[in-house]
Write a protein that binds this DNA or RNA. Structure first.
Lengths: 199, 199
DNA sequence: ATAGAATCGGAGAGCTCTCTCCGTTTGTCG
DNA sequence: CGACAAACGGAGAGAGCTCTCCGATTCTAT
């Protein structure tokens, strides 16, 4: 287990400051260099000895989660907020697009969302389940109103999201203008020739 | 440089046999485990000392290229063969789908096609250029007959291909039935409401 | 100010990976 | 068959990474 007994004993003032700084630098380092950046390198950039960083975050995984889990929770919250939106199709496509656009700006977040067997967000964690559930709900509603192809399962969309993330990130790296999410959303859209079975 | 002076001195009989075996095992190992598999592990699976494998392929990269470059060349050749096909739209979508379906069965090939900055197929190599050129040609023709959205550039399609590969591979790993290539092709398709400018 | 606890720093253990080196084994050819 | 070049095997060098340990330092409460 870690070292931060939340309520028990409050951190010393300098320790708290340092912890914040590590979080801050780690955030930037992960965003620009992704999950593969080394712990040593993060410590170096923050100007601390690696021992200090380990004192605050017992493993690399713990640090990554501290930096990124909030982002994913945000996506889940967004999805829940949209779960009762009036236009289910717009809600689904909008959420999908938002996730892609925001995540694409953060290398490590992409790595995490894409990886699957990678670092955090491994299946089994509550967050991964929540994410999947939120996505599934949005999808089902959108399919019910005929906005999305009926043959797509939540897992398919999850995989498409990952693929889209990979594409978008690359496109962005070279300054491409086309939004990959738009193309892929178009692909998921139900063929409008068949009117929605509104019953 | 390597150790195989092509024409100069023919390999000893046992050496040639061993080289073939290494190639064979490496092929299987890379297909199932991807580019991250270690050289030691490949040697072990083939039943050779690691020194022997290095004798035939001076770096890991050389081995990977020996195993995979042929596959990519095949894709380029396919694209060239389709460059004069009657139905440009069908040619483009068919090729895209074929590449995805075939590559998805080979982990290392995916890694290579996806990576960009990864191992082989790095920009600058002739093959990478050929691949890009072949793709561009197919795309341009398909756009000219109004089969593909006009706002997509070759690079966009390249990135979409990579994303599609990632998605397809994951879907396949869990036995998913939806073909990701089909969804993404649908997204690239020009809206049929606007008839092709056939002039 | 000072004792004592909390925190820091960074050397280094232990692991994995790529690649080298050279003593040993094996094929080939007169 | 015997000599000699070719090929093999695998220990280990060197680099990088995660994580540990503990003496040195800094804060804080009195």
């Amino acid at each position: 287990m870690g070292d931060d007994h939340s309520a028990a004993r409050p951190l010393r003032a300098d320790a708290r400051r340092n912890r914040e700084r590590v979080l801050q630098i780690a955030q930037e380092a992960l965003a620009s260099d992704g999950l593969t950046i080394s712990f040593d390198e993060i410590a170096r950039r923050a100007g601390f000895g690696v021992g200090t960083v380990y004192r605050h975050f017992p493993t690399k995984e713990a640090l990554v989660e501290a930096v990124l889990l909030g982002r994913v929770e945000r996506f889940v919250a967004d999805a829940r907020a949209l779960a009762t939106a009036e236009d289910a199709g717009r809600a689904f496509f909008g959420w999908f697009t938002t996730v892609v656009e925001q995540a694409a700006a953060n290398q490590a977040l992409c790595d995490m969302l894409e990886s699957g067997s990678g670092m955090a967000l491994r299946p089994g964690s509550t967050l991964a389940d929540d994410f999947a559930a939120a996505l599934a709900r949005l999808l089902t509603r959108a399919q019910r109103v005929g906005a999305v192809r009926g043959d797509l399962e939540a897992r398919d969309v999850h995989d498409l999201l990952r693929g889209c993330l990979a594409a978008e990130r690359r496109a962005r790296a070279r300054g491409g203008a086309v939004r990959m999410a738009e193309v892929i959303c178009e692909g998921m859209r139900a063929k409008s020739s068949a009117p929605p079975p509104t019953f």
